[in-house]
Amino acid sequence: MNELATKFNVPQAPSRMKGSPPDRWSQIGWAAALGVALLLPVLLTTRYQMTLASNLGMYVLLAVGLNFIYGYAGQMAFCHAAFWGIGAYASAIFATKFAMNFWVGMAAAAVVTLLVALALGAATLRLKFYYFGLATMGAGEIIHTVIVNWENVTGGVGGITRIPPPTLFGHALSGEKEFYYFWLAFALIGIFVAHRIEKSRFGRSLIAIREGESSAEAMGVPAFSRKLLALCLSAIYASVAGSIFASQTAFISPESFTTHTTITFVLMVIVGGRGSLPGITVGAIVLSLLPELLRGLKQYYMLLYGIAIVVLIIVWPNGLGGALSKLSKQVRSIAKGGAQP
């Protein structure tokens, strides 16, 4: 069936990533975005706005993390919230029960999440698209149920309270502004690392796997181990985001870490445009703010949120990233003086 379908369809040349020269436009874009991000707390007037902004870096970190396995490698992993939850719970437990330092706890939690991701990936990454999605979704649900039921460790439905805040050179973080910059720093590191990986051989091999696993393997890419590595990177990003999240809110409970939450993260990557870091950064910010922006519409806001997502996918099937690169191509050709047909 598949073979016939390809025979009947348009033959497509395999898209190859070329090492693009440093792009002036995107550099200007990033610099402008960084400027806005640094100045944002000054620009915001109300406490409510600052509260909303304080978490933006977390969503960016989570979405950029999910992008490794889903955006670059093209594997629909449906357990990102579970990785996030493991990171949050592990570091919360290390901090509250073992009085572990925040940074040590965060690293230890990342190791725990990494081990879970390794086991899960080893068992499921040979599965095809839908099956891998369903298996990881099942894993996410199982992890959630374990968190709910393993009461003497996780506190069950009640969760864990009084998690200490992160410390930076002996200073315990407090207040929205400090957390905003803390998250911002992590988000920037996260984006930078992801950018370097995207341009590396490893990153290109992930994209080759997304475009066609068997042809990637034929070119000598060890698909399974590359996908496993991508899943581990995703898990580590999520785990770090979880550790900071737990110590920021000082309280975590199982209901934050469900498949429902995973779907929000997946939508951030989709709306942003799989594989496009600028798109995903914008996507994460827009989707985490969208419910708040629509809140004025009372009970209709979540309804509109759902509709907005469907419309976005229909209008921009390649996400904001796809729309952005199309736009920048047009801008560039106009700048060069080439008339657009």
């Binding site: 997946v266 939508l267 209709y300 979540m302 309804l303 949120y305 759902g306 997502i309 469907v310 996918i313």
Partner: peptide, 21 residues
């Protein structure tokens, strides 16, 4: 198909909240 599946996720979010409305 991936885009179509994701779109149905959007529909499911919309319907869940339509029911709430």
């Amino acid at each position: 198909h991936k885009s179509q599946v994701i779109a149905t996720i959007g529909v499911s979010v919309a319907l869940e909240n339509l029911a709430m409305v």
